[in-house]
Simulated scan of single mutants.
Amino acid sequence: MIPGAAVWKALPNRQRWTILLLLAAVALANVAQPYPDLAPLQHGPTVALLLAAPWLLRRWPLSDNALACIALFLLLHTLGARYIYSYVPYDDWSRALFGTDISIALDLHRNGYDRLVHFAFGALLTGPFAQIARRHGGMGKTAGLLFAFAAIGLASALYEIFEWLLTIVAAGETADYYNGQQGDAWDPQKDMAAVQLGSALALLFIRR
């Protein structure tokens, strides 16, 4: 078995720095954490993935560009996780910078940050999924892209089911806060639609 230090050293330097940057972002997101009871549920999977990343990247290497897309998605998620998504204060930031609310400008009736991150999941991870299919699944370009589109949809659906089960088991009375439904009974379906829209746009971009 290869020692962990050797696995870490074998990674390209840019990829090591990317993992360290993401770990630092998670640490900063938990400084003066406004929702400490829910923070482990929000950040725990990210930390576990980052700790496993050297072994995963050794087994299934990715290009720097693909890893950068994954890192950008995880940064968006980490920001949302700090505020359990439903309370990301983007309107406060917008007022401070531009003197107006994003919610008013876009006629939003709920906090839309979670929908943005679901869209980003499709838009940013379709490329890495397609690269995995081509590099490690032996697929051609078109087949790899179609696989990525389908896999993104499957991952989105499985996540919604996982989130539902996790909140029943672990979140208890805070389930609605953790899920970020904000009273919308159709939130999971809208989230999955946002994911597939992001993935479809990514496919068009990659094909061009």
Rank of each mutant, 00 (worst) to 15 (best):
P3Q: 07
G4F: 15
A6T: 09
K9I: 10
A10I: 01
L11F: 00
P12L: 03
Q15N: 06
R16L: 07
I19W: 07
L21Q: 06
L22I: 06
L23N: 02
A27F: 14
A29H: 07
A32D: 15
A32T: 11
P34E: 06
D37V: 08
L38W: 05
Q42C: 10
V47R: 10
A48W: 08
L50P: 03
L51V: 09
L51R: 06
A53C: 05
W55F: 12
W55T: 01
R58I: 02
R58Q: 14
R59N: 05
S63V: 04
D64Y: 06
A68K: 11
C69H: 13
C69K: 12
C69F: 12
I70D: 03
F73P: 11
F73Q: 10
L75Y: 01
L76G: 10
H77T: 01
H77E: 09
G80I: 06
G80K: 03
R82M: 02
I84V: 15
Y85T: 00
Y85W: 10
Y87I: 08
V88H: 04
V88I: 11
V88P: 08
V88K: 00
P89W: 08
P89A: 04
W93Y: 11
S94V: 08
A96W: 13
L97V: 13
F98R: 10
T100S: 12
I102G: 07
I102R: 04
S103D: 03
L106W: 13
D107E: 14
L108G: 02
L108N: 01
Y113D: 04
V117E: 09
H118G: 04
F119H: 02
A120P: 09
L125Q: 05
P128G: 02
P128I: 02
A130W: 04
A130I: 04
A130D: 03
Q131C: 07
R134V: 03
R134I: 08
R135S: 15
H136W: 12
G137K: 06
G137A: 08
G138Q: 00
G138K: 03
G138E: 05
M139Q: 12
G140V: 06
G140L: 10
K141D: 13
F147C: 12
F147Y: 13
F149C: 11
I152A: 15
A155R: 08
A157F: 10
Y159E: 01
Y159C: 03
E163R: 00
E163P: 01
V169W: 13
V169I: 14
G172L: 07
E173V: 11
E173G: 08
T174E: 15
A175E: 02
A175R: 07
Y178P: 02
A185R: 15
W186E: 09
W186I: 13
W186R: 15
P188L: 00
P188H: 01
K190E: 05
D191E: 02
D191N: 05
Q196T: 09
L197A: 07
S199Y: 04
S199E: 02
S199C: 08
A200S: 14
L203I: 15
F205S: 12
I206V: 13
R207S: 14
R208G: 09
